[in-house]
Design a protein around this nucleic acid. Structure first.
Length: 120
DNA sequence: CCTGTGACATAAG
DNA sequence: CCTTATGCCACAG
């Protein structure tokens, strides 16, 4: 625990925890990692995660709920299709009811800590 | 150590 | 809503 994993590793870990049909923002992840100003680096971590199938990078958008990173996916609208496939309504590359499906990693963290430390 | 980069965030026009 | 500009941080070379 003394060792501090790379920022990428942590960001990817959070991205993996995003529930199905939910989304979050780069800033939220960055804030969760304690670096609210390094949201850009989070996006970069997603870029590296692009090689990992276990990381649903399509569930990560910017603070406005816009699929800013859609251009980095294979297709032009692959990201949108993936999200819509999960029940996420999108219009003009912007997530509708963004706040309703927004998933804050810090909430999950709090839950984890409160839940218990004996398990996991 | 310095430089470049980037899927952000925010502010201003 | 759009574009432009600035800050900010982590990582690669």
């Amino acid at each position: 625990m003394s060792t501090k994993p790379n920022f990428f590793e942590r960001a990817q870990a959070v991205a993996r925890k995003i529930p199905y049909g939910c989304v979050t923002s780069y800033g939220a992840i960055a804030r969760y990692l304690g670096a609210s100003k390094s949201a850009r680096t989070v996006g970069w971590a997603m870029n590296a995660s692009h090689l990992d199938d276990s990381i649903p990078a399509h569930r990560v958008v910017n603070s406005k709920g816009i699929l800013t990173g859609k251009h980095h996916f294979d297709g032009t609208n692959l990201m949108q299709q993936l999200l819509e496939s999960e029940g996420v309504r999108i219009e003009n590359y912007q997530i509708i009811s963004f706040q309703e499906i927004f998933w804050d990693p810090s909430l999950e963290l709090k839950n984890y800590s409160l839940k218990t430390q004996q398990n996991k």
